[in-house]
Write a protein that binds this DNA or RNA. Structure first.
Length: 205
DNA sequence: TGCCAGGCCCTCTTTAGGGCCTT
């Protein structure tokens, strides 16, 4: 019995840069817990990486060094976050990015998690091949997803990613007659060659 | 001073290069 795709934790990190291997750290985590397609819980916290972030990151995220100076440490926040996610499956937009930071931050505190990742970006590229762009902000506009106008903040991005994810999952039911798509099906869909997506979806009706 | 991410995906491909995404 595999988990339904509509039950997962959708998360988003704001970070000091693109690569934990180059010393970049998380500065904010935002997440929403979905159960059967409903948001049942949320998690959000800034975290102090222990060094100053660049002016680019301050401008990009709106998260300032002053804000971070009052925030709890990454260790403290990630320790609470690992309890929040438990063994739930995880979703993120361009999940390989968020997975790298989650893994790196949890390595530093000697903790882990039991769930698996799925990627809304890869699924979107397959289900909406006609879309010009699969950037999160562009997909929000493309699908008319409700939002509060805030982007590049962790909880706001996690909220719209969750809406996008549910829209993608539901489109399998509405447009492809796949009742209750499983999380595993979404993971497999994300790996399909674009040209065989139609065949794949027909096979899984 | 010079270095500078990683994975996916397409194509004028596979002995490679470059755009898209994430901050």
């Amino acid at each position: 019995m595999t988990a339904p795709a509509t039950s997962a934790i959708v998360l988003d990190f704001e970070t000091t840069g693109l690569s934990p291997n180059q010393g970049d750290r998380a500065i904010e985590i935002g997440a929403v817990k979905l159960e059967n397609g409903q948001v049942v819980d949320r998690f959000q916290s800034l975290m102090n990486p222990g060094f100053r972030v660049s002016s680019f990151i301050e401008g990009y995220t709106g998260i300032t060094n002053n804000m971070l100076s009052h925030a709890p440490s990454c260790d403290e926040v990630m320790s609470e976050f690992v309890d929040f996610i438990g063994d739930a499956n995880l979703v993120a937009h361009n999940a390989s990015f968020d997975k790298r930071f989650l893994d790196a931050e949890l390595d530093l505190i000697g903790k882990g998690y039991g769930g698996e990742f799925a990627c809304s970006l890869l699924v979107s590229r397959r289900l909406n091949q006609e879309a010009n762009s699969h950037k999160l902000g562009d997909l929000v506009a493309y699908h008319n997803i409700a939002n509060d106008g805030v982007f590049h903040r962790a909880l706001a991005d996690a909220e719209v990613t969750a809406s996008l994810w549910l829209l993608l999952v539901n489109s399998l039911t509405e447009n492809h007659a796949i009742a209750q798509p499983s999380f595993e099906l979404m993971q497999k869909l994300a790996k399909q060659p674009k040209a065989s997506v139609g065949k794949f979806l027909t096979k899984h009706k």
